[in-house]
Amino acid sequence: MATTSPPASTGLGIDHIISDPGIILPFIMNNALHVVGAIAILIIGFWLAGRADYLVGRALKRSKHVDEMLRGFFSSIARYFVLTIVVLAVLSQFGIQTTSLVAVIGAASLAIGLALQGTLSNLAAGVMLLIFRPFRIGHSVTVGGNTGTVRSLSLFWTEVVTDSNTQIIIPNGSVWGQSIRNMTTYPQPISTAQLHVPVPSGWGLNDACLRIQQMTADTPKVLASPAPTARLDRGGTDNALQIVITFAPDGDTAASVKNDILRAIDEQMEKPARQQRFA
């Protein structure tokens, strides 16, 4: 009766190591080379990741239209992209199949993306806001139905402070998906006021315009730019000749400025009368 001998073992068993200790040396050398290669890949990979971070940040820093936060965001993306490639290279160094691992990572990323759909939409909106910059820090805006001053802008939300010093945090998806009113981008025109006065008795027309214009310029709370003017015109019920004074008040002070101008004109008109009285 024929007997079958057990198949020869092809692995590295304990009996083989005990009977022939020299067989473990190639095994150690082979794996040591893999470890050394993996360490070298890690060192070079971390250096390349740092260089990618630095180069992307420096390239974006040259552009005045790219926000500092956005520079950091893209620099981090470049760094982690290189690190991902480094990890895959280290795993392949030990004979691990990275194709299936990449597929698992892709599927996990898709599941995470679907779960965080709202958060990712805010992130995408934040990137768009930082790129196109419809408003900046300190601008007075109306966003998401809220009016106030922009205090900060991050990748996920916008902070607005109202006139009553109330903090409002608005998700960037709501900011980017609605109309934005920016009251600071274009400077508001300087408001001017007018004052109609009759030509003072005994004053020449040119002299009256020059003197009244100078008195207006010397009046407190009258802005130097645009400079005040005094021009002749006809108006009123009798279409009489009069002087139209145009000036720019400092803030909401038009009424008090008009009062000061009329008082100054009246004082100038009374001077000749006083001089004749005390002559």
Rank of each mutant, 00 (worst) to 15 (best):
N182V: 01
N165C: 08
P171N: 10
M183S: 14
I170W: 05
L153A: 10
P189L: 07
I169Y: 08
Q167T: 15
V175R: 00
V175A: 01
R151C: 00
S191W: 09
Q188N: 12
T185N: 07
N165K: 14
P189T: 04
G173M: 03
S174I: 11
V160H: 00
P171M: 05
R181W: 04
Q178V: 01
P189H: 05
T158E: 00
I170G: 00
I180M: 02
V175Y: 00
F156G: 07
F156L: 12
V160F: 02
I169S: 10
T192H: 04
R181S: 13
N172I: 01
N172Q: 03
T192R: 08
A193E: 05
V161G: 03
R181I: 12
T185K: 12
F156W: 06
P189E: 09
V161H: 04
T149D: 13
R181F: 09
D163Y: 10
I190K: 10
I190S: 04
T158Y: 00
V150G: 06
E159W: 07
R151D: 12
W157Q: 08
W176F: 14
M183H: 13
I180P: 03
P171E: 11
S152M: 08
T192M: 10
W176H: 09
T185I: 11
T192V: 09
Q188R: 15
W157G: 00
V150E: 03
V160P: 01
Q167P: 07
T149S: 13
W176N: 10
W176D: 07
N182D: 11
W176V: 11
T192S: 09
T158H: 00
S179Y: 06
R181V: 10
A193S: 15
I169G: 01
N172Y: 01
T166E: 15
R181H: 10
G177K: 12
S154P: 01
G177M: 09
M183N: 13
T149L: 14
N182F: 06
